[in-house]
């Protein structure tokens, strides 16, 4: 008789478990069926009257029914949990095509970008990066670079003069002198920075622009070494093999002095409008450091020699990005700056 009640209770409970519409309903079935005061517990109370053998058997039947019911309850509960999780996840749908809040990344100035690239390049070649003041003395800007007062070479650079007799540096070359004074030979240095020339401004001329000065002083430094560094530098800058040539150029702080041309990157040599049909583009002045310049900075030119060059950073930036108007660089217009 007990067997029957257990059987009946079990099948009734299974049906209720299957029919439970909510976790709460399921919980009610659990309480009714296998709870401490549930139906199975009720049945087990009547076991005292049974013979030991029968008690043992019925006990086993009860246990089996309990385990089955609990397993069914757990399985059903897990179904509810999974459904609930699914529902929650579904409710948490977001439109990931919406933009992220907060500001977008800003933009480095194009001159900063190229300048850093060059700084990293030269540091990797063992050069140190030096700074010098933008307001300079006549001595550093001219005299110490072998450009004495009343030398016509002073005309090559229209100078802004300041009250008090100082001037705005017309090139980054004074940092050569400061570098030699501070660090002495051997020396490998570059000096990127802002320079000033008293020129009227138009699409290709600025009174404020950027240069990168470079200098190497060691025991034996030759034109062959200068050519090597220039070729290495320019190959890295333009990310392709470049052909360079030197031709005579006059700058009082170098002797011999050169203009360095690169073979036109647009036409590759036959001539085009960019290179004015010459096949070559003038890129930077350079040369072996004039012995007078070494001597002025206390370096013996019999013992030490060097090369120096001046790269037009602004011009390089314009070439790299195809900027057609130099005035944009200091115009502060976001429509320009955000392109970089």
């Amino acid at each position: 008789m007990l067997d029957e009640s257990i059987q009946e209770l079990a099948s009734r409970s299974f049906a209720r478990i299957a029919a439970a519409a909510s976790p709460e309903a399921l919980e009610a079935v659990r309480v009714d069926a296998v709870g401490r005061k549930g139906a199975l517990a009720e049945i087990s109370k009547g076991m005292g009257k049974l013979s030991p053998e029968e008690r043992k058997r019925i006990g086993q039947v009860l246990n089996a029914a309990k385990q089955q019911l609990e397993a069914a309850l757990d399985a059903r509960k897990q179904e509810f949990d999974e459904a609930a999780l699914r529902a929650r996840l579904d409710a948490e749908w977001v439109d990931l095509t919406l933009p992220a809040p907060g500001p977008r990344r800003g933009h480095l100035h194009p001159i900063t970008r190229i300048q850093r690239e060059l700084e990293d390049l030269f540091v990797s070649l063992g050069f140190t990066v030096l700074d010098g003041p933008e307001v300079e003395t006549e001595y550093y800007n001219f005299d110490a670079l072998n450009i004495p007062p009343d030398h016509p070479a002073r005309d090559m650079q229209d100078t802004f003069w300041l009250d008090g007799g100082n001037l705005l540096r017309t090139h980054t070359s004074p940092v050569q002198v400061r570098g030699m004074e501070r660090l002495g030979p051997p020396l490998r240095m570059i000096a990127p920075g802002r320079v000033f020339r008293n020129e009227s401004v138009d699409a290709s001329h600025e009174h404020t622009f950027y240069q990168l000065e470079g200098m190497m002083i060691d025991r034996d430094v030759s034109v062959a070494h200068l050519l090597y560094f220039m070729k290495t530098l320019l190959t890295a800058i333009f990310q392709r093999d470049v052909t360079v040539r030197l031709r005579p150029g006059y700058f009082p702080f170098v002797e011999p002095g050169f203009e360095l041309d690169i073979q036109c990157l647009i036409c590759g040599g036959p001539g085009c409008p960019v290179c004015k049909h010459s096949g070559w583009v003038e890129l930077l002045p350079c040369g072996l450091v004039n012995p007078n310049v070494l001597r002025i900075s206390g370096i013996d030119p019999e013992e030490w020699g060097g090369f120096a060059f001046g790269l037009g950073l602004t011009r390089l930036v314009m070439m790299r990005y195809g900027i057609d108007d130099i005035r944009h660089l200091q115009g502060g217009d976001l429509r320009f700056l955000e392109q970089f």
Binding site: V123, T128, M216, V223, H225, L227, K231, R245, F258
Partner: peptide, 20 residues
């Protein structure tokens, strides 16, 4: 003619340049 000069790497000691 400077085109008669072949570019050549200098032999210099490797050194960490002073920082900035």
């Amino acid at each position: 003619g400077y085109d008669s000069i072949t570019p050549r790497a200098p032999l210099v000691p490797a050194a960490v340049p002073p920082g900035n």
